Simulated assay, not measured.
Amino acid sequence: MGMATVMKPPASPLTTAEIAALALSLAHLGSGPQAAAARHGLRHAFEHLQLDDDVTATTLATLTEPLPADIADRARTIASAITSRMVVRLHYRDVSGRITVRDVDPVTCMVHREHWYLVGMCRLRGAIRAFRFDRIIATEPTFVPARPHLAERFLPFQGKRAA
């Protein structure tokens, strides 16, 4: 008996939050054959979203490239904090080189052009912030439950959903 035909409902576009979640789960898989196949699948899924502008092309390249090993380790901690809904402690170097330690209620991750960001509620600033992965110098898991936040409200400069 052959493989059953799966009837698919009409395709609805992935949300930016769904894309970010998929990409994050792939980004820290490393560079083994499994990861390569998964990234190829993600790239294939994007081709059907008809995203043609150069911002999107750059973003897609970033999404489907493996993260450097040290950033991948921090990404794993971040992904785990999002999944387990726990506050994550970041040691963060801002654009001017100042280092702060911040407790963040992690909401989602996103990619914009060539950078990955953790988006969340920064308890130090009491506001929504996007933290660039390459400026996060260390991550620590905590056992503090994060307050719930909706990802859709936390994607300030993410592109519109694909039509």
Rank of each mutant, 00 (worst) to 15 (best):
G126M: 00
R98I: 09
L24S: 06
Q158P: 09
P66C: 06
H149D: 03
E140A: 14
A130F: 07
T139H: 10
R43Y: 15
M86L: 13
A127K: 13
T59S: 14
P68L: 06
A23C: 14
L63A: 03
P141V: 03
P10S: 13
R76D: 12
I78K: 07
W116S: 06
I128H: 12
S31R: 11
R125H: 08
V55S: 13
T5S: 08
V104T: 03
D105R: 14
G159R: 15
L67D: 05
A35G: 03
D134Q: 14
Q158A: 14
R39M: 04
A69S: 07
A45G: 06
M121R: 14
L42A: 11
R123Q: 09
G30V: 02
L24T: 02
L150C: 11
I82C: 03
R113H: 13
P106M: 01
E152W: 11
L60D: 06
V87A: 04
A69C: 04
Q34W: 10
V95N: 09
R147Q: 10
V55A: 15
R147A: 11
A151P: 00
P13C: 02
S12V: 09
M110W: 14
T142G: 13
V6R: 11
T62M: 02
R43G: 13
L60P: 07
W116K: 09
A23M: 08
E18S: 13
V104E: 00
A81F: 12
E18W: 14
S96W: 02
G32D: 04
P106L: 01
P145G: 03
R76H: 14
L124H: 07
L155I: 01
D105E: 09
M1I: 03
L26V: 04
G97M: 10
G126H: 01
L14M: 06
A57V: 03
A37R: 14
D103T: 05
M110H: 15
E18C: 09
R147T: 02
M3F: 11
A20N: 08
G126I: 02
G126Y: 01
T5D: 11
L22Y: 15
T142K: 08
R161F: 07
L63T: 00
A151G: 05
A38G: 15
A17W: 02
R153P: 02
C122M: 01
